[in-house]
């Protein structure tokens, strides 16, 4: 089936062709990035652990995102129901959860407090501010050995 392609400028990968149907819509943008409504997820083949959420309309804006459960198998998002408004989720299985990556002096961190919840079917996303004591900058370095122990 032919799908409509669009060419977008990206900060890390130059000019990229993406399918229009691959665009995610964030009706509220994100805190600090309120005007960034259309995003695409770019996953470099040589680095599948990290994807880049690239703003379609602002080439200079891209966030590194990872699947939090890859590092923290027990990670659960607790949030008010109203936070899920507009995501049109019919079942939890339709949701994909990603978290943004940042770097602090101590190394890479994950924003566990405000995960991105995406309806994979309808391609609507939202950055949710979760309940409870989750870190905005959760140090990643310590978590990987823990995950490895579980696998081993």
């Amino acid at each position: 089936m032919l799908s409509r392609m669009m060419r977008i400028d990206t900060i890390h990968f130059g000019c990229v062709d993406v399918r229009q149907q691959d665009v995610f819509h964030f009706p509220l943008g994100m805190p600090g990035l309120e005007h960034c409504r259309r995003w695409v997820l770019l996953t470099p083949p040589d680095e599948p652990a990290v994807s880049w959420l690239q703003c379609v309309d602002r080439p200079e804006i891209a966030l590194a995102v990872v699947e939090p459960r890859r590092y923290l198998p027990d990670y659960r998002v607790r949030m008010y129901r109203r936070e899920l408004a507009r995501l049109e989720l019919r079942s939890p299985g339709e949701a994909r959860v990603l978290v943004t990556v940042n770097r602090t002096q101590g190394g890479l961190t994950l924003n566990l407090k405000a995960p991105l919840v995406i309806n994979r079917k309808r391609r609507i996303g939202r950055q949710v501010i979760s309940n409870g004591d989750m870190a905005v900058q959760y140090p990643l370095e310590g978590t990987v050995p823990k995950a490895r122990r579980k696998i081993a």
């Binding site: 966030l63 940042n102 924003n111």
Partner: peptide, 9 residues
């Protein structure tokens, strides 16, 4: 969260 998003860019 605003600060974190802008820093993460």
């Amino acid at each position: 969260i605003q600060r974190e998003n802008l820093e993460a860019l």
